[in-house]
Simulated assay, not measured.
Amino acid sequence: MTYLYLDIETIPAQADEARSRVAASVKPPAQMKKADTIAAWEKESKPAAIEEAIAKTSFDAAYGEICCIGWAFDDEAPQSVSRIAADDEKATVLRFFQRLEQGYTHQSPTIVGHYVAGFDIRFITRRCMILGIRLPSFWPLDPKPWDDKVFDTMTAWSGVRDTISMENLCQALGIPGKGDIDGSMVAQLFAEGKHEVIADYCRGDICRTREIHKKMLFTFGEAA
């Protein structure tokens, strides 16, 4: 069996049109009824509420975008592709798929990641729909954590009804954690042009995912 360890880093909506749509959806709290109270909220609180709503789009593929993809086949060194220019998302995803095709010549790999079925795979799939990119034949279109095509480390630990962060799972299993950077910092790092910092963080998550996966396979009595 070939394992493909996968992790992506995402950023909030970048296009002005998408950001405008998000801003237009931000409304005052429902309990506000008086015109003067609403006017005060519009002036004092709405700008921050809009920024918060835009920041949350990094988790929504209809708005958010991919800025880095990391991967590794089996025990190979982690690789990554990074988006540098603001309009380079499509080229970044295409580079990722091209590198995948160069990297595997065997059976379709099992994709391994932390919340990979619920987030990474689906986010890539949806962005490909938007960007007009054809998916590889082995790519799972409707991934389930228990499929043979996917091994989701979060589900393997927590089950389908619960969650655990990668950081907490690393601590529980005695694996070194993320250090000074976490996913909440990626958008700011991207805005500052620190693309290699993001890439290094993403590749680090690949290493952490692989260590988690190997511990799980050993416990389950399977070969790593």
Rank of each mutant, 00 (worst) to 15 (best):
L100D: 03
D7I: 02
A40M: 07
W146Q: 00
V116D: 10
R203C: 03
A187Q: 09
Q171L: 12
A23I: 00
Y63W: 09
R95I: 00
K214T: 09
C68S: 03
A117V: 14
L169M: 13
A13H: 13
D74Q: 05
T37Y: 08
F59T: 15
D74A: 06
G132P: 12
T125R: 11
S82C: 02
K178S: 14
A39P: 10
D200R: 14
Y63L: 07
A15R: 15
V22I: 13
D88I: 02
E51V: 07
S184R: 15
K194S: 08
A224T: 15
P140G: 07
L94A: 04
V197Q: 07
P109R: 01
G221L: 10
D88Q: 09
D120P: 10
D205N: 11
L4C: 12
F97E: 08
E51Y: 02
G159S: 06
A15Q: 14
A199D: 02
K46D: 00
D162G: 01
E196N: 03
A199V: 07
A53L: 03
T105I: 01
D180P: 09
P140M: 04
A191L: 10
D205E: 09
E9S: 10
I212R: 14
T57L: 04
E196F: 00
K214S: 12
G103W: 02
M32C: 06
P176A: 08
T163K: 15
S165R: 05
G193V: 09
T219Y: 15
A48P: 00
T155P: 00
K178Y: 15
F73V: 02
R134F: 02
I130D: 01
D205I: 04
T10A: 10
E89C: 05
R126K: 15
S58D: 01
V197F: 00
A91W: 12
A55L: 02
A85E: 15
A199K: 14
W139N: 03
C67E: 00
I164D: 03
M129Q: 13
Y115D: 10
V160T: 10
S20D: 11
A18M: 11
T2E: 06
R161K: 07
I50Y: 02
I130Q: 11
D7T: 07
F220E: 13
A49V: 01
A30T: 12
I66H: 05
E222P: 15
I164N: 09
T219N: 15
G64N: 01
E17K: 13
